[in-house]
């Protein structure tokens, strides 16, 4: 009797783990798509923030203020339920995209996280010593060369810890997509709970999957940080004496 109950438990946990693991591509896809989108958009925002035209700077500042100042959950609801309530959106050419909950979640996450990433990149940009830019100018480097050789490589390195932090947050934020019918890791976990009335073990399995994802991401980021660290250069060791 006890053995049978334990067997049923093991079967349940194995089935649940399998169902949750099958949902990893959804979570991962949502994360990768919105991370790429948010990074590109964030880069664009920083470019706009440093632009000469005041209206362009204003738009970028307004965007960051709006999306950093409101909860992501609210933004997801606004995109999913809010926009769908508007006739022009429903009859418009983009409805096939907005009809899809995964697209709506990705769009909201891209907009929200672009604001944070822009701030991270802006901080990195500000941390580049002014003397280096002056030196580059003195060497006669043009705008593009300066960006390619001096600004971007250093920005990347300076931004990486905070940027990595943002990416880890994004992995976890994907779980909010489950509120608009996306069957991601959290969505599947909730579905299993709703059918089995078991909460703790199912949520623990889902948490384990997120730990695996963030753990892998953290390891990747640490590797990238080490690669970009000039003090652990794999070259002839010119910077290693510090």
């Amino acid at each position: 009797m006890g053995g049978a109950a334990m067997n049923a438990d093991v079967t349940f946990l194995a089935d649940t783990a399998l169902a949750i693991v099958r949902a990893v591509p959804v979570t991962l896809g949502l994360f990768v798509a919105s991370a790429i989108g948010a990074s590109l958009l964030g880069g664009g925002l920083v470019a706009a923030l440093t632009a000469g035209l005041a209206p362009v700077r204003g738009i970028a500042r307004g965007w960051i203020f709006l999306f950093r100042g409101t909860p992501l959950l609210l933004q997801i609801f606004m995109v999913y339920y809010g926009l769908a309530a508007l006739g022009p959106v429903r009859q418009g050419p983009f409805w096939p995209a907005f009809r899809d909950p995964l697209f709506c979640a990705g769009l909201a996450m891209t907009c929200c996280c672009s604001a944070y990433i822009a701030e991270v990149l802006r901080g990195a940009l500000a941390a580049i010593p002014a003397g280096q830019i002056e030196a580059a100018l003195a060497c006669g480097m043009g705008r593009v060369t300066r960006l390619r050789l001096i600004v971007l490589p250093q920005m990347l390195r300076l931004a990486l810890p905070a940027y990595g932090n943002e990416l880890v947050m994004m992995v976890k934020s994907t779980s909010l997509a489950s509120t608009i019918t996306v069957l991601d890791v959290t969505g599947v976990a909730q579905q299993v709970i709703a059918h089995s009335y078991r909460t703790l073990d199912v949520f623990c399995l889902a948490a384990g999957v997120y730990l695996g994802l963030t753990g892998a991401l953290t390891a990747l980021l640490r590797w990238a940080e080490r690669r970009l660290d000039p003090t652990v250069s794999d070259g002839a060791g010119e910077g290693a004496s510090r």
Partner: peptide, 12 residues
């Protein structure tokens, strides 16, 4: 597609 409340389902 699964909904947590009837209202959300009715909207969709």
């Amino acid at each position: 597609r699964y909904y947590h409340t009837m209202g959300e389902r009715d909207l969709d």
